[in-house]
Amino acid sequence: MRKIVMGYIVALIILCISIWLGISIGSVKVPISTLWNTGADETATNILWKIRMPRVILAGLVGAALAIAGAAFQGLLKNPLADPYTLGVSSGASVGAVVTLFFGITTPILGIYTLPTFSMIGALVSLFIVLGFAKLVDRMMKMETLILTGIIVSSFLSSIISLMIALTGEELRQIISWLMGSVSMRGWPYVKMIFPFIIFGSLMLWVNRRELNAMLFGEERAKYLGVNVKRSKRLLLLGGSILTGSAVAVSGTIGFVGLVVPHMTRLMFGADHRHLLPLSFINGASLLILCDLLARTIIAPTELPIGIITSFIGAPVFAYIFFRQRRTKGA
């Protein structure tokens, strides 16, 4: 128990440090005191409140959403390699977002929430296709089957995106930079756009934390423990899709965050979802804030897409988990 408490304390400290670094470092140094010092330099105040702060918060929200969604997907599918990216859910969300941008869809009822909504629908549809197809291939839904299906669906969806990009012409650059994953130049409106979805989606997952624990022993045993498996599964898939959809809507496809963060957290604090979910949420936020910092400073003044940084870290971790799983299971 003390270990878990320490886990929360350390995670929160890291998050604070990440935010502090994310705000201060950049082409212009902004001292953290600008936050509360009313008499501070006006440019610094502007950079802090109009550029750095929304960017850091957005990166944090996206990272948190992807990480907690990854943790839930992994628990639900009992598959350590599952995450929104490897399952192809991110690609589905991208298609939803690209379609919205491509056709310039605006719905008066949804207003600014049009883009995330379509993104979520895309995520949910692709998730059902992947799971449905994987189940058709292999009733046991083995780890490899699921990942392969994710790749198949994701490649197909990418080709749709490429096709639409080819057809757009002038909007091209904007969509491509968005696709590669970035949280730059988004500003407060984007934060407002996804904030409610991320809180709501995370709550949906958190409410099912005990159910996730029970389902680790198989759906059958979970049912015997009194879990309404159907309802929990629906909530978890829906929550995961909402989180992925909203994250992708503002930042494009950022891979492997949902894989690396829950994995590391689980290694340190165990697979109990009561703590795994919130800890992944916090650590996901920290990780993406730091990755974003790296992306915009490493070859400054040029800015790298953040997706490059996460994939650079994530792919080897993915390989490592895969190796370990295969080895320990002796498959």
């Binding site: 009992k78 045993r221 423990l225 165990g270 697979a271 299971k329």
Partner: peptide, 29 residues
């Protein structure tokens, strides 16, 4: 679940709980 407990034949699982956590999950209902 409070009336009837069922223990099926169990197979492999992907993630590891401690023994205590595993037994605690029996209190889910």
């Amino acid at each position: 679940a409070r009336k009837m407990a069922v223990l099926p034949q169990l197979h492999a699982y992907a993630f590891s709980h401690s023994v205590r956590e595993t037994v605690s999950i029996g209190r889910y209902p």
